[in-house]
Write a protein that binds this DNA or RNA. Sequence first.
DNA 1: TTGAAAGCGCTAACAT
DNA 2: ATGTTAGCGCTTTCAA
Lengths: 335, 335
Amino acid sequence: MDKKNGTITIYDVAREAGVSMATVSRVVNGNPNVKPTTRKKVLSVIGQLGYRPNAVARGLASKKTTTVGVVIPDISNAFYAELTRGIEDIATMYHYNIILSNSDLQHTKELSLIETLLEKQVDGLLFLGGEITDDHRKIFAATSVPIVLAHTEDHQGKFPFVTIHQQQAAEEAVEYLLSEGREKISMISGPLEDKVKGYPRYLGFKNAMKKHQLPDDWVYEGDGRYQSGYQAMTRLLQEHPECSAVFAASDEMAVGAIHAAHDQGVHIPEQLSIIGFNNIPLASQVRPLLSTIQVPMYDIGAVAMRLLTKYMNRETIDTSEVYLETMLCLRDTTK
Amino acid sequence: MDKKNGTITIYDVAREAGVSMATVSRVVNGNPNVKPTTRKKVLSVIGQLGYRPNAVARGLASKKTTTVGVVIPDISNAFYAELTRGIEDIATMYHYNIILSNSDLQHTKELSLIETLLEKQVDGLLFLGGEITDDHRKIFAATSVPIVLAHTEDHQGKFPFVTIHQQQAAEEAVEYLLSEGREKISMISGPLEDKVKGYPRYLGFKNAMKKHQLPDDWVYEGDGRYQSGYQAMTRLLQEHPECSAVFAASDEMAVGAIHAAHDQGVHIPEQLSIIGFNNIPLASQVRPLLSTIQVPMYDIGAVAMRLLTKYMNRETIDTSEVYLETMLCLRDTTK
DNA sequence: TTGAAAGCGCTAACAT
DNA sequence: ATGTTAGCGCTTTCAA
């Protein structure tokens, strides 16, 4: 049944079935130009021998690997995990596999990962979450492999992307707080040097406050995680006990803030409103239920992957820059 | 700079540098048998031409792809996301990439994923979380590709694995509840047909209760998620308001239970103790902070991947069946 | 409908 | 230290 080698190849099947390699290749690839009898014969031999096509050889010959590379900041982050699920589901649907790698948002790591993925001859590349620099553009532009950016955008390089309107979503959240009658609003931001999310959301806050001629400098910078939200809130309450609302740039920080407020005896939402960002599962697994901006994480991944398949198939693209809708999701931390 | 084709190969570099392909291959692969001058020359040509080695061709020739397949139930699940991070970090450390695919614990999907991964000639396979059946064993046994199971175990097939003692951990949790003086203990279990986690944890509960000659049939079956925990607790409180402790088979269900109890006016931990399972981030992001069994998720992934590298390198293996330690992590939902 | 044969880009003996 | 060469297992013209 096996050959000396142990691996049985298309050649073995051909010999055993009394046909040529080409014919075996045809039946394996579903080419219709094969006489039904022949196909049946070949198929049965394949079954008997337990033949398994070698995708690497196929990749070399056909110049297609049916795998796409995914560079993501951190898979252990709920937001990116959900987004990745969207990617993977669509990839599977189109018969692609994904090679996943974490960048931790580190510039040089990102570049070397991209390099490695291109060496592996991925058919396409999904780049998530990091800021696009000239280094990125250079390497992206130099390859013919389709690239789609997800949850980040780039206008200089003209690369396709799917993301959300970060700044606008932030503005809406703050506007809502304002509409509640809150005026002493503070922000717990993410890292401001994060040009992709942190800074735009910060700008959204600034803008909304300016528009209403309200002070906009109660900004506390966190790192996006629970603890930093807790700490920011604690300081905030010390320095500005009169604060009546906070917009947090992530749900985790928002929840940290809720608990800090609670520990200071501040009642939510009676005395203080809080709005988060993303609507990760956590938001609806804490009490009070967190009001937040709902970001279509799964869809960002799914749509980006779908877009990538279009590029890989050389289909015509109608829109290469897509912004998905966010929605204010009001629960119990707002009035 | 480029050739007509667009892709520049090892042959182009060789010609341009005035050496043979073999020599270029040597410098690319860090073979020491190259005169420094030659190496320098080749390297410079590689730089000029922007040569990028084709890993697919290399894989075909060397029969090594430096990629491993990972079959995981669901990457959007916090538990598996963290575990995957452990896998990926170690994989990167040993210069492997991972192809990730979600099985949703579906038998047939698992098998077809494994098949696909083997076609792609992965150097190794990590299989997570699902029950091992004869179908799995058959395909695992038929390949020479090293397989390591993670967070599941198999004794019939003799495949290496790294996991935890599910039943024992559950017993310890229940024993703790008992040691608190609680006697009317209930369990909110995961799916009991889950032979890998659900059932063993259930057995742990049964065992501990039997050992103390206490009734062990207040068991409510959930699906592991928040909502099911909430519902189970709600029913539990209706049917057995005298219940004084609950052991939940997952943190999410435990948190759901906390909130259900809260909604019924039951005080935790005064009237009722709750212990969860896993210690995902959520456990320390809710109030009261959840007491739970801390499972080394990251380490399970990391150790499994490390073990896999040993198999791939044909190193000698000291232990092919590793159980990692769990620990009772007591916080505010127990006395 | 089928087969023959030329690669795909690289590695790995084997020579030199 | 370097070159030659035979594959690796498949796809894909091109003929037949």
